[in-house]
Amino acid sequence: MLEAADLAFDSPGVPMRFRDRREAGQRLALRLRGLRGDRAVVLGLSEGGLVVAGEIADVLGAPLDILLSRRIEAPGPPPAMLGAVGEGGLVVWDHGAIRRFDIEAEQLTRLADGARAALARQVAVYRRTVAPVPIAGRTVVLADDGAATGTTAHTAIGVLRARQVGRIVLAVPVAQARVLDRLAREVDQFVCLRPVPFMHAVRNSYRKFSAVADTEALELLHREPRLPTEVRR
């Protein structure tokens, strides 16, 4: 159960829109400095979250890795997120979205199979040269660039629990308030810089929100571990 002090917000002084994912990660790192020396591992939730996670890992002097997942979407426009599949095969559904869009079971199966296949290809690309960092029994900082529906983060938390981590610290720059309340009950600590009452898309909270290529993500994962660094307020 989360104590009140474990659910941290930092709205005063936080810009309405972050410059980019790196700035968001640096601001989160300020709130997570207390984890230095805790043998924490920092995981980016897919490629965008990895950029945020890299800044946190630098400040903590912690190992950096990626937790891969794939959205399960109904055809658009715009595409509707129905769930997500995580590395290891765990699937989490957004049952509310499924009811709203009246998706039949047969179509859900096809969509999930497609997401699994796409994720398997991505896992093959990353794990060919980047072995997973051991996380059993350790504190894991799970970082993403935002939480609009929370489904992907929910999947990732399930994957981490199945891998028997010690503690889960979820760190996001921005999250929709109703999603934040739900996710906070699933982790040991939740740091969110800016909760918002409604979020149409995470990208709207950034001035620069370009796609992160596999090559950029792999460069982050291949770099040498760094000693803890200070960040400016």
Rank of each mutant, 00 (worst) to 15 (best):
I72C: 07
L183S: 12
I103K: 12
Q107C: 00
P134G: 01
G96R: 10
S210C: 00
L227P: 02
E3P: 00
A57S: 14
A29T: 11
L82Q: 12
E55Y: 04
L50M: 04
A153L: 13
F209S: 09
T149P: 11
L160R: 08
I72V: 15
Q26M: 14
R223L: 05
D102C: 06
R36L: 10
V85Y: 03
R182M: 10
G25W: 06
V51M: 04
L220I: 09
R223F: 01
E47H: 08
V196R: 13
D10G: 10
A118H: 03
V41L: 11
V133K: 08
T229S: 15
E106F: 04
R99Y: 00
P15N: 03
D6M: 10
A57R: 03
L2K: 07
R178M: 05
V140H: 09
E3K: 14
M199I: 15
P173Y: 02
P228F: 05
A40Q: 11
R99E: 14
V172A: 11
I103V: 15
A177Y: 06
C192W: 04
L2V: 15
P77H: 13
A24L: 01
L220S: 08
V42G: 10
L193A: 03
L68D: 03
A120P: 00
Q176M: 14
G61P: 14
L170P: 08
V85W: 04
V169I: 12
P134E: 06
G86L: 02
L142E: 07
D144E: 13
R31Q: 14
A105E: 15
V187A: 13
W93H: 09
E106R: 15
P77T: 13
G150F: 04
D65K: 02
M16E: 13
M199A: 12
P134W: 03
E104N: 11
P78Y: 12
P12D: 03
V91Q: 06
P75E: 13
P228D: 09
Q189T: 08
A153E: 12
I56A: 02
A84F: 02
F190N: 01
L227I: 02
A97H: 00
R185K: 12
D94F: 02
V159M: 07
A8H: 02
L28P: 13
R71E: 11
A80C: 12
V59H: 10
S46G: 05
R223M: 07
S69V: 14
V202F: 09
G96A: 10
L193N: 06
A148V: 11
P15K: 03
A5Y: 08
L67K: 13
L180V: 00
A156E: 10
R127V: 11
V41N: 09
E47Q: 14
R178L: 09
V125N: 02
L82D: 09
E106Q: 14
V59T: 15
I157N: 01
V85K: 09
A153P: 02
A217N: 10
G88S: 05
A80N: 09
A62N: 06
V212C: 07
A136H: 08
G88E: 07
P195W: 00
R207T: 03
R167V: 05
A53Y: 08
A211V: 13
L7S: 09
L220K: 06
R163Y: 02
